[in-house]
Simulated assay, not measured.
Amino acid sequence: MDFIIAFIPAVGWGVMPILAHITKASPREQLTGTVIGAVLFALCLYIIHPTSLAPIHFVVSFISGIFWAAGQLLQFQAFQKVSVSIAIPVICGLQLIGTTLFAALILGEWITGYQYGIGVGSLLCILAGVLLTSNQGKSAGLSKPLPVPIIIMLVCSGLALSSYVVINQFFHISGLSVILPQSLGMLCSAMVMNLKGKKRLGFSLVVHNLPTGLVWSIANLALFISNGLIGMAASFPISQASIAIACVGSILIFKEKKSPKEWIGILAGITVLMIGVGMISLLKP
């Protein structure tokens, strides 16, 4: 049952970027709609199941929401520059490096030599899968290699999205107590970002992204519950099976043309990635 919960974020986060991209909204409209959907979910959850809002828990979770909003805006902006099938593997790969190593080295979730051996091997599999999956050439709308500004955008997104997860774990905050203050941090960040925007938001496009926020919220809640059940070093890599869903789903839904060689690379990358996820999911502390 623990690992079933751990796979819910993979499905939610795999579907989320596809839902956002379908709306054809701007990055700020996508972020705003997603955040409002997340806040509505958090408020309903809090009404149904009130949790403690201790000051330190509130502040830390609020800050994690700020990191998420910054990382997610950069992710949505990256989708405007390159396809979802390229951006997602790179960003998720960086998140894997940050969160898993933080959990293993700082939180001490890897203790034995066996755990380190399997853990390092699984991370190498996952990263190899990410590289294979993202190696897509001109058919993805961009010649290789990626331009430096886009690489910087993807790296900053990955670091910010890693920080949103690890900051709560560092202070041992998990479960339902994270959700409401985190969503308020996301909302405040989105409001500040919109104040700096030059164009007005389209109301209908923002509304169309509310389901994106709902899907993200369910996945996010499942992740923090899973962190408490099996540890972040195992739960977060499992969640990154979302790469497979987002990558293949975006190619099929948005009808991206791929050569046979690219399809072989993508499917091989997903296979290697899933082997790595399966290995690391065994490292329950």
Rank of each mutant, 00 (worst) to 15 (best):
G197I: 01
S189F: 11
A233M: 08
P181N: 13
V59H: 10
K258N: 15
I56F: 15
I5F: 04
E262T: 14
I88R: 03
T32E: 08
A6G: 03
A70W: 05
V82K: 06
N220E: 08
L221R: 05
G249V: 11
K261N: 08
I230D: 02
L210I: 05
P237K: 05
L205Y: 07
M186Q: 10
S157Y: 06
P27W: 05
W13H: 03
P260L: 15
P147R: 10
L142G: 11
L273H: 10
G121H: 13
G93L: 02
V39R: 05
N220T: 12
M191R: 07
Q75D: 05
S83H: 13
G265W: 07
S134V: 00
L74P: 04
G33D: 00
I173T: 08
W68P: 09
G33W: 11
G228K: 02
I270W: 04
S204W: 13
A268E: 09
F79A: 12
G129Q: 02
I118G: 03
S122Y: 00
Y114C: 12
G12N: 00
I243T: 00
L127P: 01
K196Y: 15
I179V: 10
Y164I: 11
V120E: 02
L154E: 02
F224G: 10
Y46S: 14
P89F: 01
T271P: 08
W216G: 00
L205V: 02
S281I: 03
A38K: 00
A25Q: 06
P181H: 12
S250V: 09
A87Y: 10
I48A: 11
Q72G: 08
G129S: 06
I230T: 08
C44Y: 05
I253W: 05
W110H: 00
Y46I: 02
G202K: 10
P89Q: 03
Q136R: 15
L74Q: 10
S26G: 09
K258S: 03
T100L: 04
S177V: 14
P50Y: 13
G141Q: 12
M193R: 05
A104N: 01
L146E: 14
S163W: 07
I56W: 13
N209S: 06
G113N: 05
F236C: 03
H208Y: 14
I280Y: 09
R28C: 04
V166A: 04
A87D: 08
G249W: 13
I280H: 14
F3C: 11
L283Q: 06
S162Q: 06
L205M: 04
V39S: 01
I251V: 15
G175W: 08
P285H: 06
F58K: 13
F254K: 08
P147C: 12
T51G: 07
L267E: 08
I126Q: 15
C247Q: 13
V207M: 05
A54P: 06
M274I: 13
Q75W: 11
G278S: 11
